[in-house]
Design a protein around this nucleic acid. Structure first.
Length: 424
RNA sequence: GGAGAGAUGGCCGAGCGGCUGAAGGCGCUCCCCUGCUAAGGGAGUAUGGGUUAAAAGCCCAUCGAGGGUUCGAAUCCCUCUCUCUCCGCCA
């Protein structure tokens, strides 16, 4: 959510910034609602003030043993007027909040203007895509041949866009998770968190998945309105919801491994083959809550932490800054890490690192106490995948494949596989 | 799943229809006193919002959440959520 003051006092310039990402703000409607809100709120508060002071008079008169009947008559219609004023105000407020919940974050000034992903700006590349003396296979062929990757079985158990891994591949998948968690906790200063994989609607509003993107979520049937998490960002970032963090505890840095569940309605037909786009996948997620003045640097650091995983594994990748139209709803700036996939002959997203500035924090009421002022202020939140485990597995398979279909184990990963050097 | 108890400010804890945004204590901050430490005295110490160019001031809201009764609700009624205790069941 944007600062309501922006929508009150700097409506025009806010609309211009939103237009950069292709969002049309209904300026006239907002201005009108805002004017009404102001008047209704003043009126209501005036009535409440009257009620309070009158009630106190009645209390005093009664205590003094006076006849309160005349006083009661004076306030007879106050209740009705109050009720009416409350209804008027709350209907305007409801409409205002509905609008503002649907307004995306302002893109940071250094985010490139663009129409689609082709306008994303490449920042840097690391590593060279491997050269093969044979035609490299994709992960589906590599995994299916020895029977380690079974999409048919998953389709039987559940449906399309799921996978069953077995044997050494399942083990490597698990090893990747351990490897990433260890790196981030011991080398990058994150605190490991284990969190619920189901969350309530409040949490999804807090991080911005609701109300706009409910179609992408799996909602549970049952008495409780629970949802499967689409990313660990939701439970972990919500740790600071309704919290005022003491300065001594800033910044907060968490890493969490969770499964992620996405219904991805509307994206059918895209990446139907293989493990790239699944309804269920594992992710090791980095989340930070930082002082506002630190968030831009924190995004660079966090992105570097995700990059470090790829570097340690020896996977070639590039970093792109998402252009204005590719930016996620809540994000002010996002770097995507794209890993080289020989099976596809292109770079594919494996991590997305975003600075949300105070956008999520405002919804979350996530604050810190600024020692300069002694007052609570909204903090800034960030997150990034460090990394998407399924896609990392795919990348390792395709980049480390050998002519006979076996897969070398990256050196950094070998300790996590009991010293195993090749999957065969 | 069954039975009961509870939810108040940073914490503990009163209040059970009217000058209570909330006694008292602890903690914290500042000041005074005291030749160390300790003790003592005083003041302050929630959050959001409105009004304002801003501040001060004034006003409104908030005692788990939402609704209701009332001129007036932390206090009464209803619904929900969460916590604790006992029993059952279990990983």
């Amino acid at each position: 959510m944007l600062d309501p003051r922006l929508l009150r006092n700097e409506l025009e310039s806010t609309a211009e910034q939103l237009a950069r990402r292709g969002f049309v703000l209904d300026v006239a409607r907002l201005a009108e609602l805002e004017t009404r809100r102001k008047q209704l709120q003043v009126d209501l508060q005036e009535l409440q003030n009257q009620r309070n002071s009158r009630s106190k008079e009645i209390g005093k008169a009664k205590a003094a043993g006076q006849d309160i009947q005349p006083l009661l008559e004076e306030v007879a219609d106050l209740g009705d007027r109050l009720k009416q004023a409350q209804e008027d105000l709350s209907s305007v407020q409801q409409e205002l909040s509905q609008i503002s919940l649907g307004v995306p974050n302002l893109p940071q000034a250094d985010v490139p203007q663009g129409e689609d992903e082709s306008d994303n700006r490449e920042e840097r590349r690391w590593g060279d895509p491997p050269e093969f003396a044979f035609a490299p296979k994709d992960h589906v062929d590599l995994g299916s041949a020895p029977g380690w990757m079974d999409f048919e079985a998953a389709a039987k158990l559940t449906g399309s866009r799921f996978v069953v891994l077995s044997g050494p591949l399942a083990r490597m998948h698990r090893a990747l998770i351990q490897f990433m968690l260890d790196m981030h906790t011991t080398e990058h200063g994150y605190t490991e968190a284990y969190v619920p994989f189901m969350v309530n609607a409040d949490s999804l509003y807090g991080t911005g998945q609701l109300p706009k993107f409910g179609a992408d979520l799996f909602a549970l049937q049952g008495e409780q309105e629970y949802y499967l998490i689409p990313t660990a960002e939701v439970p972990v970032t919500n740790l600071v919801r309704d919290v005022i963090v003491d300065d001594a505890y800033m910044p907060r840095k968490w890493v969490a491994h969770t499964p992620c569940f996405r219904s991805e309605a509307g994206s059918y037909g895209k990446d139907t083959r293989g493990m790239i786009r699944q309804h269920q996948f594992e992710k090791v997620e980095l989340v930070q809550a930082v002082r506002p003045e630190d968030s831009e640097q924190a995004l660079e650091d966090l992105t570097g932490h995700a990059e470090a995983v790829l570097q340690r594994l020896g996977l070639a990748y590039r970093v792109v800054t998402l252009c204005t139209s590719d930016l996620g709803f809540s994000s002010a700036k996002t770097y995507d890490l794209e890993v080289w996939l020989p099976g596809q002959g292109q770079y594919r997203e494996i991590s997305s690192c975003s600075n949300f500035r105070d956008f999520q924090a405002r919804r979350l009421k996530a604050r810190w106490r600024n020692p300069q002022t002694g007052k609570p202020e909204l903090l800034h939140t960030l997150n990034g995948s460090g990394l998407a485990v399924g896609r990392t597995l795919v990348a390792v398979m395709e980049n480390f494949q050998q002519a006979d279909g076996s897969i070398r184990v990256p050196e950094a990963l070998q300790p996590y596989l009991g010293g195993l050097q090749v999957l065969e």
